[in-house]
Simulated assay, not measured.
Amino acid sequence: MPLSEYEQRVLEQMERQLTSDDPKLVSTLRGGRSSLRRWLLTGFGALVGLGMLVVGTAASIPVVGILGFVLMFVLVVLAFTPPRRSGPVGTVQPDGGVRRPAPGQKGKGKGRGFLERLEERWERRRDEGR
């Protein structure tokens, strides 16, 4: 049974509200399909690597065993590392609003050192407390 126009408008409004309230949750939920595919591909590849390791060991061919181990190890590490994001979605403000980064600010902070960024955050937090 299809939704009425009113229900579709309400659903779209709820989706926009959720997107503005919690962009991290939305990005997590949208990544579900690709993460399942990622798990399946890395799991299958790790099984292939395990098979190569067993065959290389049983046939006394060390190169095949080593390649199987390396393949299995790399794919297991790949499976457990989170996928890289293209950039920040937004910053949640203290009042609950979301501030989107300006187009030129996407790579902001990449050239600075870790300590400089920590120092800047510390100063910002100290100023907000006043």
Rank of each mutant, 00 (worst) to 15 (best):
P88F: 12
G96I: 03
P88D: 01
T57R: 09
T91K: 10
G56W: 03
I61S: 11
G96N: 01
L78H: 04
L50K: 06
V48Q: 00
G90R: 01
V54Q: 09
Q105Y: 08
I61A: 07
V89I: 14
P88R: 02
V89M: 12
V98W: 02
V48G: 12
V48L: 08
L78K: 04
V70Q: 02
P62F: 06
L115S: 11
K108I: 03
R85P: 06
G104S: 11
G56S: 02
L47S: 14
V63R: 01
R100W: 14
G96W: 07
L75I: 03
V64T: 07
G107Y: 13
A102F: 09
R100Y: 15
T81L: 15
G111C: 03
L47N: 02
V48R: 01
L50G: 04
V89G: 09
L71M: 11
L75M: 08
F69Q: 01
A46N: 05
P103C: 05
G97L: 14
Q93V: 05
G87N: 11
P103I: 03
A46S: 06
S86M: 00
M52G: 04
P94D: 00
V64S: 02
G45R: 03
A59E: 08
A46R: 05
A59M: 12
G49D: 00
G68M: 10
E116H: 14
A58E: 12
V77L: 09
D95S: 04
G45T: 11
L118G: 14
G87L: 11
V70N: 01
F73S: 04
G45H: 10
P62D: 00
T57D: 01
S60V: 06
R84Y: 10
R100P: 11
F69H: 00
V98Y: 02
L50Q: 04
G113L: 06
V74I: 13
G65A: 07
G96E: 04
L75G: 00
Q93R: 04
K106C: 07
G113C: 11
V55L: 13
P88V: 12
D95Y: 04
V76N: 01
S60A: 13
G56D: 00
F114I: 15
F69N: 07
S60C: 08
G56C: 12
V64G: 07
G45W: 12
V54L: 14
A59S: 15
S86V: 12
T91M: 14
V64D: 01
V48K: 00
P62V: 10
K110Q: 09
V63Y: 10
V70S: 08
T81V: 15
R117F: 13
F69C: 11
